[in-house]
Design a protein around this nucleic acid. Structure first.
Lengths: 199, 199
DNA sequence: GACTGATGCGGAACATCGTTCCGTACTCAC
DNA sequence: GTGAGTACGGAACGATGTTCCGCATCAGTC
């Protein structure tokens, strides 16, 4: 990851007081959970309540709704990137790739409404899109390169393109349970496709 | 258009009283105008005010917000289909095709937020998606067939696929003025592509 | 043309949302 | 322990979608 500073600082620095740090973490966790069940349009009050905190506290840490969304997603993207490193260490390249893509699928599946937010034209989400490209894409690219060098996959594919395809598979079908299963089948199909020798 | 009844009746029949019919038309016109400037999320009160009626009147005609959206879009899709017939009569096949696609582009451009609504999973929008496929796609298919028979275009393309591509070109770039110009350039490029002889 | 029941209208009222504000409580360095 | 400053909670505000009902208006009938 060449052009990204190692720890892209939060917009606001981490709070000095211990209770504030605890609340911030609780908010991020609660927001993640609410987003998973209600999409990114989850009510602010529900998030605050789940975190055991008042809405004022939420707004202290995240002045705009989009700030909270961005923070949660950056956090989960970072976790996704970290998972890649663990998987690379624990599994052979082909299997690491498969496992990571399914991990990524899980990430995307809990982000109902995110695509709409990103395409809403609201400039508040611009940094999130950039973060997506500069963190996730290089990670997958590395996994793909390693797997290809190992002979695990045959096809050549753009990392960003592949990430987009998987995201579309997970979102396009709607939020039904049937849709989720369908999405996973399609993703596995994509992964199988990577094994197919080039014509 | 084989499987579509000629006049797919409104969910509610047209009102008996003359003033009610007038208000309904005013609401549809006002909603179209508001959607064009504010997207489909335009406030209900703004639509009612532009139509010169109270919100109660709006909700009498369209019990759910999605009912109003559906009604406006069906009306505009019908106008789009009607435009095709006029263009076919007035222009040679190739030019009729071009002009219709640009007409369709204009239609899609004023529908910010519609794609998100359609993919929201809300079943209220299902009939709208069906109407899209059963009205617009056959229309374009006829235009394409005629143009191909006339030798105006060389490529073979699925009507629905082409409609989707144009819609994505118009929505994907965001709602900026630059985006609109960009979209039209890309659409014209697509149309030019249809002329390219097959490899 | 007047009458009258049915039809439709307007906008106040309600619930919910994102966001702001400020008195109060807590924390932490000394 | 103490004080200064940080952070908290939730009431309050404005905007939204939606409901409700007293009142106006229309369209047949005599």
């Amino acid at each position: 990851m060449p052009s990204t500073p190692d720890a892209p600082e939060q917009v606001a620095p981490r709070p000095r007081r211990a209770d504030a740090r605890q609340n911030l973490d609780a908010l991020l966790e609660a927001a993640k959970a609410e987003f998973a069940v209600a999409g990114v349009d989850a009510p602010v009050r529900a998030i605050a309540e789940r975190a055991g905190v008042g809405v004022g506290t939420l707004y202290r840490h995240f002045p705009l709704r989009s700030d909270l969304i961005s923070a949660v997603f950056r956090r989960e993207m970072d976790a996704c990137v970290a998972a890649a490193e663990e998987l690379e260490a624990a599994f052979p390249p082909g299997e690491a790739l498969d496992r990571w893509i399914l991990r990524y699928t899980e990430f995307v599946a809990t982000k109902r409404g995110l695509a709409a937010a990103l395409h809403s034209g609201d400039p508040a989400y611009e940094p999130l899109a950039v973060y997506f490209s500069t963190r996730l894409a290089p990670t997958l690219e590395r996994l793909l390169d390693t797997a290809r060098a190992d002979g695990a996959i045959a096809q050549d594919v753009e990392a960003e393109e592949f990430l987009g395809a998987v995201a579309n598979l997970c979102h396009g079908g709607g939020p039904t349970a049937r849709g989720a299963a369908h999405a996973e089948r399609m993703v596995r199909l994509l992964l199988a496709g990577l094994r197919t020798p080039v014509a």
